[in-house]
Every structure is written in C-alpha cells, then in structure tokens.
Write a protein that binds this DNA or RNA. Sequence first.
DNA 1: TTGAAAGCGCTAACAA
DNA 2: TTGTTAGCGCTTTCAA
Lengths: 340, 340
Amino acid sequence: MLRAMPNNTPKPPVISDVARRAGVSVPTVSRVLNGAAYVSEEKRSKVMKAIEELDFRPSAAARALVARQPKLIAVIAGNTSRYGYAETIRGIEESARGAGYTVSITVVESAEDEIVARAVSLVLDQPLAGVVVLKFDPPGVAALHRIPKSIPTVSISGVREVGVPQAVLAEADAAAEVVDYLLGLGHETVQHVRVPPSRKEDGRTTGWRRALVAHGARVPVPVDAGWEPESGREIGRALAADPAVTAVFCGNDEIAMGVIRGLTEAGKSVPGDVSVVGFDDHPLARMWTPPLTTVDQDFAGLGSRAYGLLETLIAGGKPKKFSSERPTVIIRESTAPPPA
Amino acid sequence: MLRAMPNNTPKPPVISDVARRAGVSVPTVSRVLNGAAYVSEEKRSKVMKAIEELDFRPSAAARALVARQPKLIAVIAGNTSRYGYAETIRGIEESARGAGYTVSITVVESAEDEIVARAVSLVLDQPLAGVVVLKFDPPGVAALHRIPKSIPTVSISGVREVGVPQAVLAEADAAAEVVDYLLGLGHETVQHVRVPPSRKEDGRTTGWRRALVAHGARVPVPVDAGWEPESGREIGRALAADPAVTAVFCGNDEIAMGVIRGLTEAGKSVPGDVSVVGFDDHPLARMWTPPLTTVDQDFAGLGSRAYGLLETLIAGGKPKKFSSERPTVIIRESTAPPPA
DNA sequence: TTGAAAGCGCTAACAA
DNA sequence: TTGTTAGCGCTTTCAA
C-alpha cells in the first residue's frame, strides 16, 4: 500500500511566492491568472515573468475548493477496452475535452454489492461535475443505483428506460431490421447468439424476437455466448450440427467472427450454407472472410450525445429524457439466401 | 459552451451541516470520517447517523487542499480505443483502483503545439497525484515534454529511453525473434509494414532491421501503413505484385489482417505463397483465417507496471528507471516456408 | 487599478 | 474525549 510519505520532489511554488517575487499582492496575481479585471500592463508583465521563472501552476485543489464548478466528469462502466465501450468512452472524452472537462473512468468489475459500492465510492471521492454510467451490463446497472441524486447523472443504454436522462442507440429496431432482411432472403427463421445481457433481455434480443413473431416465424431458443470470440467459435461448431439453422444473428461482431470460424471449421460454408450477421460494425468486420453483414453503431456519437445531455444537466437545464438514434444495417457478404 | 449557471440540484451538504445535525463540532465529524483519534461511541453513532441522513460526502477538493495527497492519476495518450492503448489503460486503471486511485484519461489529438498545450493544461487543472504518459505516438511524446517536473510522472513505451521512469515492452527483441524465425523457415528476407511510429523508428522496426542485418539478409524499404486495417489491405494488394516478397512482418495485428486480406484478394495464398506475421496478439488474431502468427504483448501488465512505478514515485521513493518485459512470439498458421 | 480581508470545506495542533 | 483556533492556496468581495 501507499504510505503518506513526504514527497522527494521540491515543494511547488504557490501563488504567494509569485506575488512576492513580482512585488504585487496575491489577488493581483490571481487576476492575471484569470485574465479577468484590470491589471496594469506593468504589473501584468512582472507577474507573468515571475510565473515563468518559478514555473508556477495554480493548485487545482485550491481552485476546485473555491466556488468553481469541478471540471471532472466520471464515467462508470463494466469494461473499458472492448470495442463498443472503448468507442463510447472516446466519444464522451472528446466532447468533454472540447468543453474543458477531464473525464475519469472507473470500472465496476461485477454487480456484486461490495464491488459496486467500492467503485462508486471511489468515483464520488473526486470533485465531480457529473457522471455518465454505461448501462451495457449488470455492473453498470447496479452502479447507477448507487449514484446519489444530487449529482448530475446520465446513462447510456441500448434500450429506453425510465430514470436519469439517457443516450440510447435503438438496438431493437435495428435487430428487427436484420431479421426482416434475413427472412426476406428466404430463411425460415433466424437463430440468435447473444452476448451477456445487461438485464433480462437486451434490445438486440427483443428486436429479433419481435420481428420473428411479426413474421409468424418459429422463435428458436437464443444461445448465450460470452464476450470472447472464442465462445462464438464453440457455438459455431455446435450450430453446424443442426441442419435447421441457416441464418444466425449474433450479439456482436466478435462473436459473429467466432461463430463463422466455428461453422467453417465444422465444414459449413458462410454464407453458402449459413448466413451470419454481427452487430457493431467493428473495424475488422469488413476485413473478415467473408466481409461481415452487421449493424453500424455510432458509439462515439452515442458518447457524445450523453455528454450533451450531461452538459445541460450541469448547467442547470432540463435535458430531454432521451437522446435516441437508430443504428444502420450494413449488408456485406456473410449473408445470402438459404441453400436450396 | 457551458455557462457557469447555478445548478438546479440542491447544494450538497458539507461537514458543518453534519456537525450541526449531530450536535458536535466539525473536527469531531472529521475524526469519525478519518477513523482516527478517540471519539465516544455515542457521538460517533450520532455522526454516522447524520452522515447517512444527509448523504454527506467529504469534498475531495477540500481534502486535497489540506495536505492529503489527491487520489487522481491522469493518463495522457494519443488514443484510447485502439487495442493496445485500451488494454494498457485497463491495466493502469485496474491497479490504480486497487490502491484507491481514480484515473482520468485525456487524449492528445496531434503533436501540434497548441493541441498538446491545451490537453496538458486540462490535465494539470485537476488535483493530481501523478501522471502516466503513453509514449506510443508523437502526441504522447510531445505531451510528456510539457509535464512539469514537479509532478510524479512515468511513461510507457516500446523502447527504453532516458527521462522519467518507464514501463517498457521490449518490442525490438521480439521483432528480431520474429525475423529469426521467418529466416529460419527459409525466407530470403522479410518485408516490413509499419504502423505510424512514435519517433524516427519504433522498436519493432529496429528489431526487424537488426535481425536482418545480423543474418546478412537484404533489408527492404519498410512500407508505412496507417492505423486502419484498410490501409493494410491496400498494401497487401500492392505487395502481391512483387514476387520477391514471401514473408511480411506487420506492425500490428489489424494491419496484418488487412494485409492478408489484400494478398488474398490479389490471388495469393497465405501462408502458401507468403507468410504474414502480426504484432500484439489481438483477441481476433486466433480467429482469423488463417490464425495469425503474432507477438503477444501484455499491455494490461504493462499498464500495471507503470502504475507500480508511479506509486513508488508518489510515495516519495525512487523507482527503477525501467520496468521492462519481453513479449512472446506466438506461432500459429499464417507462416510457413516459402514456396518452392 | 490595487490591496486587505474574508472564506471555500476540511484537517491538524492545541487546549481544555 | 472534545472543542477552539489556525491555516491549506486560491478567488472574491469591498474599499481605497
């Protein structure tokens, strides 16, 4: 553990050091620092010089203490490095940075009470302007429940839910469109391989089911995959054994790639024997063999919209309850009519 | 832009509110907060109760001001969402969180002076315990130069460099090993497709060149790729036209996948006609067709080691100059002897 | 245009 | 065991 020991670096200069060196009062230094108020050219330059010489930086802690709104936005997520998460965070950070905010990220490793409490508490220990919670998974959902109402908060999700303002990517509609497309190609039904859901059922699964039912098609039991492509591979191998499956809709591209690999290893051809669709439009989806039919999700835009909602909230405004957008289906070469 | 408007959320409770409600003095509240000193069971429970009721959280800003070390670590990077970056950040965050730190991320979009200055300034405006700079690219390198020496700082890189303490993944050695392996298979030389380097030459290129020279093999002119797999594809197509290239060593897996795709599209077989090696062991590398021979880089471990260095620095200790580790070559199926 | 004084929310030192 | 008194480094009145 870290001990509170004296730091070996020299104590950094403070504002009074600058004032003394420049021969002015502390508030005057503060004035030139903030570009505000009137300061004579003479003093201003003296102060600037002193700042340079001392390599002075105002203490962020002191500034934060004094009235000023904190300039930190916390992002809470169950994961930071998987494609969708990373891109969403990128979108948040980019927008936030543009407005002068820094973003912190903290991951909640599981939905277990103690883990969630510890992570949230860590987050709240910083001086925060607001928080964005990625509700892509159970840890995210659990974390949201623990954020005090007094802190401006928005969430990000794949489905509309009541609660704090929310940026959403309307997955269900896109999923339904995928199924429509596949059924239109002549497939009798569409198998679904889903990623770990954030709740009982995620938007992709809901949309898939809805479309199947709307078409009067048989609704197969969804197969659960993990987050790793490897789990898709195993499922692909298993699916290959069932001649009834001619079309598979996967919860994300990585899983789809794994499924394709498993199918191929088991001797099936994609899309000749079975069509496979992913979700997300991962950068490698178009490089895949065959290039993957998938759904483009603008994660960065999603993050950016979440920031927008939060900004309104922080400013004391009343943002829309939802900022919703519809992902786009991208048809490439992993889908075709079923074998005759 | 965000205006400094009054917030609509109620002003959060402060320590004096708790003290008043509990009928004790402010320092007493502080004492129970910090678990220190003697406080009677009676008052302690009164205070706890007041804290609960008010949902009070001590102001991090005030705490930071008063001697206590801030609990925020800033990560500065040229990117946050690409595989290696995201994983490295994950490693940092995980270790930092374990020790009670939150991590902020801010990206530096280019090495342009103004951009770098703005980003760094944003970072320094937070009360920081220390900073980790990802020197994987020019923006990262530029940012490092702007961090004041008074702030505990470590960097992360693929090659050893003088300066602040550094966590390194010894790319050059691994790259050399790849070339040794390929040459051992019988290839006359190895073409190199590199990702945008952080400096004149990155470790992967250095190791590749070194091994080639050591074997007395011809050293081809490296081909520059971008970060997108798509750029690899174009290069692959171009490379297919040159019968002299039978082995290609790529700067990362995404590029390698693009190269393989380009090669394949141009009618070459991998590894029959040309062998391709990637770098990073991306999660999809083993799913690829053919499964990719690559180099496993433990990015999360790298991030974790960087945190370790920083922790020592923050505690006032003197960390090693380098925490170096050697990536491992992973041979899969995208490499074979050259065609007869 | 400038400085003196007050105070942000908290912890540390000192008495009691 | 507890309260009183001082600040931490800065910004913000308020006078001058």
